[in-house]
């Protein structure tokens, strides 16, 4: 199946090689077009994450194209990862109050002794909060949707030879509620994200239901 590399390439092209999840819209420097970040956190499991963002225009309401690569901690590097290409924009503001939306396409790879997956999905995150040039606090609501997954079973095929490999349809999604705080130090912004994830049916919830992330972002 050649579709997985095709999807990966499509995501690279679509995203224009850029991404940044966290943005303090009041702290954006008009002379800088790029945002680079490093993130550490726990969401489903522990991970580290690199992000890059590019301002596509520098007007009063810039659009930021973002690009992320998330790798879980563990002995085997890059057997599991998540790539995300996103666009985000502040849609409403009044004084220091701000409302923004981010939408992204997601590609995930997972491999263990049991099976290997290539997964395509999407997410949308809305944020509403109070932003000042040197700090901010926001509430976040997000939905992470798993659209299609290619499954190649490994040990599970030994256990159950009739198991069927191939592309499968949606396997659900997670809803997240959280908060984001940021503090600006010159051209560097520190973000702290905390929250809770639920399965979309609010019954089949993640084993580690809480998430948090600490990130450092620099404008240049």
């Amino acid at each position: 199946m050649k579709i997985a590399p095709t999807i990966t390439m499509a995501l690279f092209i679509f995203s224009s090689g850029a991404n940044a999840l966290d943005v303090n819209w009041r702290a954006l420097d008009k002379d800088s077009r790029h945002l680079g970040g490093i993130h550490f956190g726990a969401d489903y499991g522990s991970y580290y994450n690199l992000s890059y963002g590019q301002k596509l225009n520098n007007g009063n309401s810039p659009i930021i194209a973002g690009y992320e690569l998330l790798l879980p901690f563990g002995d085997t590097i890059a057997d599991d990862y998540k790539m995300k290409a996103s666009l985000q924009r502040e849609f409403w503001s009044s004084g220091n109050l701000s409302f923004s939306l981010q939408g992204g396409l997601i590609f995930r790879r997972y491999e263990s002794v049991m099976a290997r997956f290539y997964n395509v999905g999407a997410d949308v995150v809305s944020s509403f909060g109070y932003l000042k040039p040197n700090w901010g606090a926001e509430l976040l609501v997000g939905y992470d949707y798993s659209a299609a997954t290619h499954i190649k079973n490994k040990l599970l095929k030994e256990y159950y030879p009739e198991i069927q490999d191939g592309w499968y349809d949606s396997s659900g999604g997670n809803i997240k509620f959280g908060a984001r705080f940021n503090r600006v130090f010159g051209s560097t912004t520190t973000f702290l994200n905390i929250g809770r994830a639920f399965g979309q049916d609010f019954e089949d919830n993640p084993t580690l239901p809480f998430y948090f992330e600490l990130s450092f972002q620099r404008q240049f």
Partner: peptide, 13 residues
């Protein structure tokens, strides 16, 4: 991570 990463793929069903 091998146990929990799959939970972002199979979720809420």
């Amino acid at each position: 991570n091998d146990a929990t990463f799959v939970e972002q793929i199979f979720a809420g069903r």
